[in-house]
Amino acid sequence: MTIFERADASLLPGFTRRFIDIAGRPLLVVTGGKGPPLLMLHGDPQTHLCWHHLASKLADRFSIVLPDIRGRGESHKPGHIEGRNAYL
């Protein structure tokens, strides 16, 4: 078990970790609870763990979806394309 998996197990008990593929790039999503979906997006420079107090309390009424936005936590970090003003 990685340090990240241990943190999720400790701070978000009962939640499930998975990676989803977005255009060939992995995005970490942690889900838990029951009810209508509630997507909770963190700011910069945080990760999904910033929601651990609130997510656990809302999980009895909502299906909580906690992604690590691109470039944060365990989600894909975009790289710079040399010679272009764009990121992968």
Rank of each mutant, 00 (worst) to 15 (best):
51 W>N: 08
72 R>S: 15
43 G>E: 12
60 D>Q: 06
65 V>I: 15
54 L>K: 04
87 Y>A: 04
69 I>R: 13
60 D>G: 01
36 P>Y: 05
62 F>A: 01
40 M>W: 13
38 L>Q: 04
88 L>K: 02
39 L>K: 09
88 L>A: 09
39 L>D: 12
37 P>E: 05
4 F>M: 02
85 N>T: 00
74 E>P: 08
56 S>C: 10
74 E>M: 14
88 L>G: 01
41 L>N: 13
11 L>H: 04
26 P>K: 06
1 M>C: 00
73 G>R: 10
17 R>K: 11
63 S>H: 14
57 K>V: 00
66 L>P: 12
59 A>H: 08
58 L>W: 05
14 G>R: 06
76 H>G: 08
24 G>H: 01
4 F>Q: 10
64 I>E: 02
3 I>Y: 02
3 I>A: 06
20 I>V: 15
67 P>F: 13
25 R>K: 15
87 Y>Q: 03
62 F>K: 05
61 R>F: 07
33 G>L: 06
71 G>M: 10
18 R>V: 01
53 H>Y: 13
75 S>Y: 13
11 L>Y: 08
52 H>M: 07
13 P>F: 08
42 H>E: 09
59 A>Y: 00
73 G>C: 07
20 I>G: 02
47 T>A: 03
23 A>R: 08
23 A>W: 00
2 T>Q: 01
81 I>A: 07
37 P>H: 06
50 C>D: 11
66 L>A: 05
7 A>K: 09
37 P>Q: 12
18 R>G: 07
74 E>R: 15
79 G>I: 04
6 R>F: 02
30 V>M: 13
67 P>W: 11
34 K>S: 15
5 E>V: 03
51 W>Q: 05
18 R>M: 05
71 G>A: 10
40 M>L: 15
